[in-house]
Amino acid sequence: MSRDGSLLLEFTGINTYYGDLHALKDVNYTIGRGEIVSLLGGNACGKSTTMKTIMGVVIPATGTVIFDGKPIEKLPTSERVRRGIAPVLEARRLFPRMTVYENLEMGAYTQPKGPQFNEDLERVYELFPRVKERRNQLSGTLSGGEQQMVAIGRALMARPRLICMDEPSMGLSPLYVEQVFDIIQTINKQGTTIFMVEQNANMALSIAHRAYVLQTGRVVLSGTAAELRENPSIREAYLGELKVDAAA
């Protein structure tokens, strides 16, 4: 699947509340087939809420979510996974007392077991030889970087057309951050669309095609990654010193 300009996900006029807190304010995104789209923003800006809204864990008060031409905002999470949306969750969220292999099996929960499962498993093992080595180990005993690989592999096992990643670089050493972003690009080139929430704006903009900037629940900026890299307010708020980053 290449970037042919057609839309895979449309997120239109979304308003989400947690009690009195208005977490997403009239938010619109589009994600084209084959794109890597990044969502930037500081803490508590609504990034994770966006993820949960796509996955159906949080239900928006108003707005529509169209996936592959069909509205999905009323569908249960399991049905969304079945249609091809898989998550890489914040802080990885593996099942710590299950083996790596069992975690991958959980990723394929909506898929039939059989030759297709084995094919997908081989693909994950090929992308992450480390994951293969550790397949019989409890996932809770793995290092953060290894866990992130399992988390990405687990998402791939669902045969997704769209992977939603929440902070894939969080808590990883710089070496692993490089590796993870390389892998994300590889997976994208193999045809999977990526939507990525990321605080590491530098890295995110280096691999994304387009990006949105979210501030207190509102989209304040959007454009191609190249445009945003040149944007002075982005440079100041997200690409500058770490201190500025943390204050944003």
Binding site: M55, V57, P76, T77, S78, V81, R82, P87, L89, R93, L94, F95, P96, R97, M98, E102, E105, M106, G107, Y109, T110, K113, R154, A158
Partner: peptide
Amino acid sequence: TKIGKAMRATAQDPEAARMMGVE
């Protein structure tokens, strides 16, 4: 079994299990 594994996964992290497609 598949549903047995889903039980263990749900016990360890219900939200993550749900996002794997577990009902």
